[in-house]
Nucleic acid binder design. Structure first.
Lengths: 120, 120
DNA sequence: CAGTATCCGGTTTGATACTG
DNA sequence: CAGTATCAAACCGGATACTG
């Protein structure tokens, strides 16, 4: 099992707000959540502070449909479900890192960086 | 003056629909419009077939505020306005190209590529 | 725990017509 | 030509409560 996700993970890896995003509001962040290994629904939800369970489910299902993540449900009680990146999903980390690198380098040049929509 | 924009430009450079986008719906496309030099409002509008003038204006103004493009109005009649990339805006082409490269390479692996929301 | 079911509000995008 | 004004719709994204 991988280390628990630090709640401040996104502040550490790359700036939270960026002018480039993957798909919808949460997909890029979820990619980051899963890059070190499979995570449970609750883990991802906790890392994405504030996301509604409905929205998280929708996003994860969309990513599953697109072949970026796998969903594995274990028949236990209480239930346990694990999400993990596919090879395809992992390949998205390349362009995502390029975007994060750009943000780290140029974010301070954006006059209105603080008001932009939240992204990955 | 640069060559007129081919109406099919986006089909040639990289696939029109991508899982990564810049900012809002049109910003990435506009970046592509301007990468070969300044363009007039009407040129960009024609290349982005179907965009409402209101939306295009809003998007261009937002990009201007963020320091990605410059707007130059010539006091002529009929009026002429030119939009061009700044150095900062040009630097976005790096990550954008990384995203386009990803799309070219993996788009056929996306089960639902056709139904995704339009992006850059 | 891992979701569904509802309801809801705001932002985003658009169609259309008009103007300096 | 390069926009603005107005109106309308769609589309997220979210709050909250509930369930196997």
């Amino acid at each position: 099992m991988t280390a628990p996700l630090d709640a401040g993970v996104f502040d550490l890896r790359c700036s939270h707000r960026m002018p480039i995003r993957v798909g919808d509001k949460w997909s890029g962040l979820i990619l980051r959540c899963l890059e070190d290994g499979g995570r449970r629904f609750g883990e991802v939800k906790a890392a994405l502070r504030g996301v509604a369970p409905k929205v998280l489910t929708e996003t994860l299902r969309a990513m599953e449909r697109d072949g970026w993540v796998t969903r594995t449900a274990y028949d236990e009680n209480p239930p346990r479900v694990e999400y993990a990146l596919t090879e395809l999903g992992r390949s998205l980390l390349g362009p995502l890192n390029a975007a994060c690198a750009w943000a780290r380098e140029h974010l301070d040049e954006l006059p209105h960086a603080q008001e932009r929509t939240p992204t990955a």
